[in-house]
Design a protein around this nucleic acid. Structure first.
Lengths: 135, 135
DNA sequence: TTTGGTGCAAATAGTTTGCATTGTA
DNA sequence: TACAATGCAAACTATTTGCACCAAA
């Protein structure tokens, strides 16, 4: 039987408070900042459980980190994520959903789950980047 | 100036020989099996270069590994990946490309890189699945 | 009380990097 | 000859796991 601990609750809360996707590490430090002395391993375990139970959605960022977000079971939408500051904008397009499904079906695939997310630099970070170039 | 070494050539060759996506580690051991004493770091560096030059396509597997694939054309396309047998089908749709770019621009994002991949069960695996259910 | 959960630290896994050496241009 | 590329091993990052301890049921 799953037990109800404040740690799980904290992770769940912080996850749903987050606008879009958050990394386990990010969520952990956010919790620490909020005063929770929760352990990193616990955060990982809680997130893994949430994902398993279907309460969280996860995807891999281009950098190879696992990102999680609270799963609004009903409808699913996609995100525009700033790779610098983490700003997330929700974008939803039924057209794309259909496209994905059809494209899969066209090739005989079933149980298609798509990963459609756009990583970029938000306006603010773009400005910063041009002010202080990386290279 | 980029130099032409047999190691690069080996990586390039092995990559195009592979049917679908391969991990750096997998490619490395495949090369070793073929008798190439190439170093793992070199494989990583070669793959990174190939991806940078646009000769290879890369994506993150659900396990967090970086997978690479020879990129036939200069344009980039997306994939339909069977989560059971690994069969990969390239799908390309200018419409989606544009959509992604526009959606990003609409929100002031720059340097947008999108992750659009569809994981599902290919026809063959679907048949197998119904014959011998997983759960 | 029972036993799953937690925290810490050590262990993994994948990938990157420093540096002396090698080989291409 | 000169300098990019290689190989090795150490360094890193993200994540997982073993284990003793704690607390929910």
């Amino acid at each position: 039987m799953k037990r109800n601990t404040w740690q799980r609750e904290a992770v769940r809360t912080e996850l749903s408070r987050a606008e879009g996707f958050v990394s386990a590490q990010g969520l952990h430090s956010a919790l620490h900042t909020s005063g929770s002395p929760i352990g990193l391993a616990t955060v990982y375990r809680a997130l893994a459980d949430l994902a398993l139970e279907g309460d969280a959605d996860s995807l891999q960022s281009p950098d190879g980190e696992s990102l999680y977000r609270a799963c609004s079971t009903t409808e699913h939408h996609h995100h525009l994520i700033c790779r610098n500051c983490g700003l997330t904008v929700e974008i939803e397009v039924a057209a794309i959903e259909n496209w994905a499904t059809e494209e899969a079906a066209k090739h005989g695939f079933t149980e298609a789950a798509h990963v459609i997310d756009i990583f970029g630099l938000c306006a603010a970070c773009t400005a910063l980047a041009s002010a202080r170039p990386t290279a």
